[in-house]
């Protein structure tokens, strides 16, 4: 049986908003480590990996490892019924065909429970090898979201290049071209406003902007985003979820044949 209680229920609402447009159905894996998910989009170009560690919950009980298949659109509909300040409790059973979401208002004067039907999902799990990345860029998540949004009004793909000059985001389309360069900047008032570039060697990769834009839906979860790049490898776009874990997106590059 699984029973978890999350005081900061808004966090789970934000998690759903950041994955539901990328993946329709997914298996949530429950174990003593935490509540996790790995799922690919239908074209197998992007993958989302979520971990909410058990220590991050006020109460976490999972007697046995098991998976629960959920339609993320339906789960999002249910979680939208929780208030932003609500405490969310999730209950499920191994082999059960439903999951229960309980929403408690902070003053305990309103308690709601929603039962959602589970589904059997034949999902493909991918083994993600440990990789040494040529360049790791950490920047404000709002800045990255702004860049992706701006570039997608000009073109469909983004070339991300890291050199010792900084990180460059470029696109081109029918109306013209665009280049945005962000330099390392650590002289900021708050650490989360810094742009930090760790480069082992220069790297340049091409990606579909549509997916990058979808990843930026996770921006409300974290002030910063980390983009890890290696030649001929999928990019990793990571948003840390404070005290709890992370949401990582992997996106396969476009490569000249």
């Amino acid at each position: 049986m699984l029973e978890l209680r999350l005081v900061q229920g808004s966090l789970l609402k934000k998690v759903l908003e950041s994955i539901k447009d990328l993946v329709n159905d997914a298996n949530f894996d429950c174990s003593a480590t935490g509540f996790s998910l790995q799922a690919m989009d239908s074209s197998h170009v992007a993958l989302v990996s979520l971990l909410l560690r058990s220590e991050g919950f006020e109460h976490y009980r999972c007697d046995k490892n098991f998976s629960m298949g959920m339609n993320l659109g339906n789960m999002s509909k249910m979680l939208k019924c929780a208030g932003n300040d609500d405490i969310i409790t999730i209950k499920g059973d191994d082999g059960g065909d439903t999951i229960t979401f309980m929403f408690e208002s902070p003053s305990q004067d309103k308690i709601a429970d929603f039962e959602m039907k589970l589904m059997d999902i034949d999902s493909e799990h991918l083994g993600i090898p440990e990789a040494e990345y040529h360049a790791i860029v950490r920047m404000p998540s709002a800045e990255f979201a702004r860049i992706c949004k701006d570039l997608s009004s000009i073109g469909d793909t983004v070339i991300i290049s890291v050199t010792k000059e900084g990180v460059k985001f470029s696109t081109k389309g029918d109306i013209g071209t665009a280049n945005i360069v962000c330099r390392q900047n650590t002289t900021v008032d708050k650490p989360e406003e810094a742009t930090i570039i760790e480069m082992q060697e220069p790297v340049s990769l091409t990606f579909a902007l549509r997916y990058m834009n979808s990843f930026t839906k996770a921006s409300p979860l974290s002030n910063t985003v980390t983009i890890s790049l290696s030649s001929e490898l999928p990019v990793v776009v990571e948003y840390k979820i404070a005290e709890m874990g992370y949401i990582r997106y992997y996106l396969a590059p476009k490569i000249e044949d």
């Binding site: 197998h44 991918l126 993600i128 999928p234 992997y250 396969a252 476009k254 490569i255 000249e256």
Partner: peptide, 14 residues
């Protein structure tokens, strides 16, 4: 134009 690869080109199934 470059071709969109899939994740199965890079990661191991299973």
């Amino acid at each position: 134009d470059p071709t969109q690869k899939t994740l199965t080109n890079f990661f191991i199934r299973g």
